[in-house]
Amino acid sequence: MKKTIMPSIIFGLLLLFVGNVYAAEPVVNPNSELYDTSRIIEELEYELTEENSEKALLQDEYADNRLYEAELSLDEGDLEKAEELLEDYEEHVKQVEEDMEVAKEDGEDISAVEETVVKNVQKRSENLRMLLERQDLSEETKAGIMKALENQQKAEQKFLAAQKKAEESLQKAKERQVEAQQKVKERQEEAQQKAKEQQEEAQQKAKEQQVEAQQKSKERQEEAQQKAKEQQVEAQQKAKEQQIEAQEKAEGQEERTSGRP
């Protein structure tokens, strides 16, 4: 029993999915009285958004909306409306490319946005292929879908090329960064070596100066000692002379006193 129920459930879910590709994402029905207002809201939301990468994401979302609306119109048998919506869809896809270009020129980081857009573009290509398989399409609608698919593929290739280019330039930037870091390291090591040498040189010089100063101080000390010794000898000599002179003076006085009657 279980064996027969499970495949039926899976088949049913598959049918639901194939029957309505965008069933999980409701939009305003193009026949609704509020459809024009919903498009005005989109236009104003786009006007109020400043960053070009965000604008690109909005246009990407609007492209999704148009595709879903085109499918709704096909379901309702309104082929003319579906064709019109497919034309609008292409306009949004073009606008995504333009906004991404401007964002790049402005130096905005669009790597994450590009990734999202590429994913959505691939998903929409798949949905367009599924739409082409429908039996209720007129030749004109088929041609419209084919054209949209063609442009979509062109856009996909362009985005992928841009992504590859961005990856390459990122790789190059990384290499340049590594190279620059290596250079900085080398220069740092060089500077450290130089500083070490300068320090050693300075230490050597300081040592030499110290030795020299010690030598000089020793010499000065010896010179001072020599001078002191000489002064001492001179003083001794002087003292001796003074002593002799004093003795002679004393002897003279003695003679003078003894010579008196």
Partner: peptide, 17 residues
């Protein structure tokens, strides 16, 4: 003819995310 709930629901859809 369009109910207030319908209007609100449709406008919410047009401002999807």
């Amino acid at each position: 003819e369009k109910s207030l709930d319908e209007i609100k629901s449709e406008l919410k859809s047009s401002f999807r995310n």
